[in-house]
Each structure stands twice: as C-alpha cells, then as structure tokens.
Design a protein around this nucleic acid. Structure first.
Lengths: 224, 224
DNA sequence: TATCCACCTTAAGAAAAAATTAAGAAAATA
DNA sequence: TATTTTCTTAATTTTTTCTTAAGGTGGATA
C-alpha cells in the first residue's frame, strides 16, 4: 500500500509519515502543493493525504485537479476548518474524507484504513478466523482444535462465507457461487444448510461466527 | 433547474444545449460574452456554463464580474487549457469547476449534476461522517468506536440520509428511496424509524447528527 | 391563552423473515 | 442394485422487524 502525504508543515508531515510507516505503509511525501500535485498525477498511489492550506496550491484545488483528470485514488484532506459549509464544499470537491486538526494518531490511522479497505478475493488459501481453520486443499475444518466433518455443500458454503469474512453475503451471491445456475432461488435450502453448519461450527457455549443479517444475508465475523 | 450556456462556437453551443435539454434541464443560451453576462446578472439561474475564450468578454472575466456583484450561482468554465497554473487561476477567479475541451457528454452532464447539488447517488462506498462510519458492504455502523446493530430499514434510512449529508432529505424522497411504491405516504413509519435510529446513533452526550428540519424533512450533518 | 400543527414517543400486534423439523428425493458409494 | 449419505422440500415454530395508532410535547399563531 503506497500512500502520498502532501503537507507543508514540517512537523505534521513528519508525524504523519512516521505514523503511517509504523503501520507498515509505504509512504512518499511532499512539502509543497504544486510538487505534490505533480507526484499524485504521475504516480499510482493507494491513498493521497492532502493538507488544506498550502502555499501555491491548496489541498482542495489539488483535489479538483486530480478528479478532473479522472484519478479516483481515495483522498483525505487535513483541515483546521470548523465550518460546516467548508466541509461540505470539500466533500463536493471530490475528497473522500477530511480530518480536522488537531487529530489523534489513532483517529488518523483508523480513517486511513477505512479508505484503503477493499473486499478480498476468494482463493484456495487456508483461512483462519479465530479458532476456526479452513483448509480447502485438504477439505478440512477445525474449530477449537477439533476436526469437523462437513458435507460438500456445507464446506463450500463455509468457505464462501469465510473468504468474505466481515462482509455480508447475500442469498443471491450464495446461490451464484455455491450452487449452480439452475438452483431454485426461492427454496430454503440455504437456511437448512446454514442451520446444519451452525450445529457443527457454532456449538453452544462458543462465540458465534455465523451471523444472520435479516433481509440481507449472512456474515462470518468475530464479534467482540 | 434553469441553466445558462454562454459559448460563441455555434456547434459546441448547440451540443451543450441539446445535451442539457435531453436531461430535462431548462436551458437559455447566448453566443456572446457581453450579452451572456447581461443575462447572467439579470436572471436567476441554477448554473452558468461559460466558455473561456470569447470575443469582447472572456469567461473568466464574466466570472469575476458576477462574483463581484455577489452572484453566487455555480459557474462552470469550459477551457482548452491544460496548464495547471491556468486552472488554478480560474478556480481563484470564482469558478466552481472547469472542463477541458474536448470532453464527453457523460462527463459534462456528470459535472453539471454535481454543481447542481443533486442528491448523490447511493453507492456502496464507506461513508465517514465525523466519528460515524457506515460500511454498506459489511452492514456495519460504528459511532464513536462502538459498533451498532441496525435493522434493514434503519440501515437503509441512515445510508440514504448520510449519502445526502448536508442536504435536507424530504419525506417523499425517503419513501421513494427506502420504501417501495406501495408504501403508505401518510403513515408515521418514517418518524418511528428516525426515532429508533436516533436512539442508537445520537445517544445522549453525543453531538447530534440527525437533524429535523420542520416541514421539510431530515438532514445529517456535523453541527459544531 | 387557546388552538393548531408537526413531530416525538410508546407499546402492541401484524407481518415478514429466519430457524427448526422431519420426510422423502437425489446422489454417491459399495 | 442396495445401501448410505447428502440435499431439497415443505410444514411449523420462533424470532425479528415493521407498522399502526394513540397520546404527548413544544413551537407558532391568532
């Protein structure tokens, strides 16, 4: 993950870069709006952090410029503005998020991570979620140290949910991926399989991993 | 929505007017900078589209003149300039947006709609408003670091309000987007859902995000 | 001050969605 | 083909969510 930081204040720039690097992000920086814009338009970053007030070229101006050249990289603008209209204006200029100074390191990193988040692809890799281990190659599932016997459909269903961990998976998507085309969308087959899966995986006394989101689907997640 | 187009090139003028009309905007036009300025200053448009290079009076000059007479109508300037400094200069002259020729119809219309502050489309993007984070793909809402359990309707309602942050959302629009056609327009279902949403999101001690605008609807906004 | 109006608040029960059974159909295996 | 396992269907129960309706609150208005 490559992040560009454009901030003319040396101290804040250092702070941002250090914070991001400590989170294992690759960081490039600029202390100048115009140079920052040049870097942003010539390189492919995963996130651009812009200070609002800089000499020569402001953060929001850079933002408008980048968006007008169809650069869709997420942009976060750092601002001291407390004015609502100003914030609305910034969001309309194409920024994805803004952060008012002074801000905490934790808040900054949290926002960065939100902006960088993308759903994962489905692979055949081993999936580990808490004490649940799914090994697609071995067709093996272990929960709390005990190996479980899953049927083919149960395994496919679990793997699909697990590889989308944290994200809601709709019934439609499940049908699409775990069943084939001609499956009946209006049967309750999924419910029955979920029920059977839960009997094996989410035994009583354990923290539940499979969650129902009414009207939307199911989700695998560690709830704290 | 009434839009003024000022452009001396007959062909481009026709193109713009036709494009806008096909999008159901009401359009008036001028082929001349001076006359265009007169029209802009004497009428109340929702958007003014100006060509940069015109005989007698340039787009940026019109822009400065209009702004100096306290006309705040959004202005879009059409330019062939590729130069950064030029673009920055235009933004500073009071223009809200600029578009470099040649541009596509889609791009033009998209920008127009942004400037007209049409309610934004509802996407699946993560929405961050202050310490409220809404992640549609995860069906996850976090306020002040704590995850909240929202029902389907509550989530849809919040997402709709949030994606129109800063703007009032009428009951009609809510019914239209969150409910389906055959919803009862005269029930107080919306009020109840708003109430339940507030219980979860705007807990006491927090700065309120959901605001009632009497006789008009609701609005999500950071009040400072 | 009385009245109206828009919105808020509650609570009950209607409606919808999901969980749970069990039986039988289909598929895999021997 | 017989047997076993897995999957689907369908009826029933349980849970969750949504709507309705009645009463309350507070501001605006005459």
């Amino acid at each position: 993950m490559k992040i560009l930081v454009v901030e003319d204040d040396k101290e804040i720039n250092d702070f941002l870069v250090k914070s991001l690097k400590s989170e294992c992000f690759e960081v490039e920086r600029s202390f100048d709006g115009k140079q920052g814009y040049k870097m942003a338009s010539e390189n492919d970053y995963d996130l651009i952090v812009l200070d609002l007030n800089m000499p020569k070229l402001n953060g929001d101006q850079i933002c408008v410029l980048l968006r007008s050249s169809n650069i869709t990289t997420p942009i976060m603008i750092l601002t001291v503005e407390k004015d609502v209209d100003e914030k609305v204006r910034l969001l309309n200029s194409g920024a994805d998020d803004f952060l008012s100074k002074p801000f905490s390191l934790i808040e900054f990193i949290a926002r960065v991570k939100v902006l960088l988040r993308r759903p994962k692809m489905i692979t055949n890799d081993v999936i580990v979620i808490d004490d649940l281990i799914i090994d697609p190659q071995k067709h093996q599932v272990i929960r709390a140290g005990k190996e479980l016997e899953l049927t083919f459909k149960e395994f496919e269903l679990l793997q699909f949910l697990a590889s989308n961990r944290g994200y809601v998976v709709s019934r439609g998507k499940i049908i699409e991926h775990v069943w084939d085309m001609n499956a009946d969308l209006f049967s309750n087959s999924i419910e029955v399989h979920i029920f059977n899966l839960r009997k094996k995986i989410d035994k009583k006394g354990m923290k539940r991993l499979i969650h129902t989101i009414p009207n939307r689907g199911y989700k695998i997640e560690i709830k704290l």
